[in-house]
Design a binder for these strands. Structure first.
Lengths: 139, 139
DNA sequence: GTATCTGCAAAACATTTGCAATTCT
DNA sequence: AGAATTGCAAATGTTTTGCAGATAC
């Protein structure tokens, strides 16, 4: 996705499309993985040497508030960030560390046996071995 | 559960049933909630004044390794700990902060559309408002 | 008696905050 | 110009680590 299209998405959500904001959001949209702040920082300072981690935190928190990005808590102590806010699950491979997205059909969401509870968000996290690592283990 | 029974569980999992280990595991088993390290510490030093947080971290990491305890990452940056390692979900109330357990029937687990992946753990986290807070909001 | 465990203090990280400088319109 | 944003440095909060002393068997 081009920066201009990213700007448009920001404007549509009531966020002023500032240069560094758009850069960070564009990065998340295009990479499609689930980077931590460190990775975002190291990747982006190549093209934007004055970018700081504080700004990355600021922007991410803003984008989360505007529901353009979601936090993923699948790694140890750090947060991962995902520009795909549609309902989907995450699989973390315990061996290679990669995180895989998978879709969950609406009809497949487990019923929550909690009477009168109001559900806002669902997070489905799976851990185990991905195909590659499961195969490698057999050898 | 009595300490003697906790000791037995530890031995069955190949863990030497040391005094402070058993104390911490027994606490988690009996409380049945999802305390953070701070809460465990404050509760247990009442009866075991020489207990340190370092030991709590050490013991928890050992119990996790032995699959007697699982980490729950539903709060901001801190870890919560749960001695119930059977498959179940957690609901976090965004208003009062309480965490509720709920069971998920085996047949209800969503199918994971990832060919050849080996699943070890499933975490299902829901956030929203609990019944009490949902009602309070209406007033 | 020896290996293991514990606990203090310090280190290591991730994230937030205060505030002055910069940028945007 | 004026309001919002940025970035440095410091603060905060959680978890880990190094190592000396204590404990278990």
């Amino acid at each position: 996705m081009r920066i201009e299209d990213t700007n448009k998405l920001l404007i549509d959500s009531g966020v002023r499309p500032l240069r560094k904001r758009a850069l960070i959001y564009n990065y998340l949209l295009n990479k499609g993985n689930h980077p931590n702040v460190e990775t975002i920082y190291l990747d982006l300072i190549k093209k934007e040497p004055t970018l700081s981690k504080t700004t990355i935190y600021n922007v991410l928190n803003l984008l989360i508030e505007k529901n353009l990005v979601q936090m993923i808590k699948i790694e140890g102590t750090e947060m991962r960030y995902d520009a795909d806010v549609s309902p989907h699950g995450h699989f973390k491979c315990a061996s290679c560390g990669r995180i895989f997205d998978f879709s969950i059909d609406e009809s497949e969401h487990p019923k929550i046996p909690l009477e009168g509870f109001e559900i806002h968000q669902r997070h489905y996290y799976i851990s185990g071995y991905c195909t590659d690592c499961a195969k490698a283990k057999l050898n």
